[in-house]
Every structure is written in structure tokens, then in C-alpha cells.
């Protein structure tokens, strides 16, 4: 009898469990893209918008893929009109506010491209999140005139 009560109680609880923050899928990845690489360019960058649909702050810990020798998480710091690109250990993805990886800001740095990035093609990247775990995305390569700075050149200020 006691057992049945517990079962009932737990069944009742299920609908009230908050959004499944710890499960894969709590992070939505929107429009992963990269700009085609100029000839002779050895490196590239991938961008995307990360939306946390769960309740808890998550972190992008790493990205990996066959596209380049090394894949790292980077950011740009603009100090006195000097651009400093730095590796970051993780990228925070808080609930409620999308984390935008974009030109001039946070990006996934592709170091040592194995072959040039060609507009129209796609390549896979595996993203590893602290809570949401691993997920794979297809990154679309856009032409050189792809919207460069949708944020209105904020990084040049």
C-alpha cells in the first residue's frame, strides 16, 4: 500500500519537474555558419547563436571537428582600438539571453584548415556542453558578402 502511494506521488511530481535542463536539447543551436576562406588563409571561424531553453546556466566547453587541425573557443577584446584575440576555456550560455557567436566577438576558431571553406558547403562540428552534453551541428559556409556585422559594427566602437 505504501509503495503504491509513493508511486502515485512520484507520478504526480513528473509534470512539475522544471524544464529538463540537464538533458541534451536544452541548448538550441541556431544558424551555425562560417565565412568562406580567402585563398592562402590558414584559419577560419565559425559562428552561431546558442539559446538555453533549460532553467540552468550551461557552458560550451569545447568544439571539435575534422575541418581543421585544432578547434578552439575564442573571443575578441577590443582595447583602445587594438583587437586582441584570446582563447577562452568556456562560453557561458545563460537562460533567457541568447549567446551570440559572431564576427568581432566570441567565435569557434578553426586553426589550420585542412581544406578551404567553400561557400555553399557544410561541415560538421561537435559541441560539448557542461550540462547538455555533446551535440553535432552542420555549419553552413557563406560567401564573402555574408552579413558581416548584424550588430551594427559594435566591435569597432
Amino acid at each position: 500500500m505504501k509503495k503504491t502511494a509513493w508511486l502515485l506521488l512520484s507520478a504526480l511530481c513528473v509534470p512539475f519537474t522544471p524544464a529538463l535542463a540537464a538533458e541534451p536539447g536544452a541548448i538550441q543551436i541556431e544558424t551555425p555558419w562560417a565565412r568562406e576562406s580567402p585563398p592562402a588563409a590558414a584559419n577560419g571561424a565559425a559562428y552561431m547563436t546558442l539559446v538555453n531553453t533549460g532553467g540552468e546556466t550551461d557552458h560550451l566547453l569545447s568544439a571539435s571537428g575534422e575541418v581543421a587541425e585544432t578547434v578552439e573557443l575564442h573571443t575578441h577584446l577590443m582595447e583602445n582600438n587594438v583587437m586582441k584575440m584570446r582563447k577562452v576555456e568556456a562560453i557561458e550560455v545563460a537562460h533567457g539571453e541568447p549567446t551570440v557567436l559572431r564576427p568581432g566577438g566570441l567565435h569557434i576558431m578553426l586553426i589550420g584548415l585542412k581544406k578551404p571553406l567553400v561557400a555553399g558547403q557544410t561541415f560538421p562540428l561537435t559541441l560539448r556542453f557542461e550540462k547538455a552534453g555533446e551535440t553535432s551541428v552542420q555549419v553552413t559556409v557563406r560567401g564573402k558578402d555574408a552579413a558581416a556585422m548584424p550588430d551594427g559594427h559594435a566591435h569597432h566602437q
Partner: peptide
């Protein structure tokens, strides 16, 4: 520098 993945290509595009 050409190994610059982001800011240099952007500026040159501009």
C-alpha cells in the same frame, strides 16, 4: 595578418 580569421577579413571586406 592573414592568419587572422575574423577581424582582418572583415575590415578588408569593408
Amino acid at each position: 595578418y592573414t592568419f587572422c580569421p575574423d577581424v582582418c577579413p572583415l575590415t578588408l571586406l569593408e
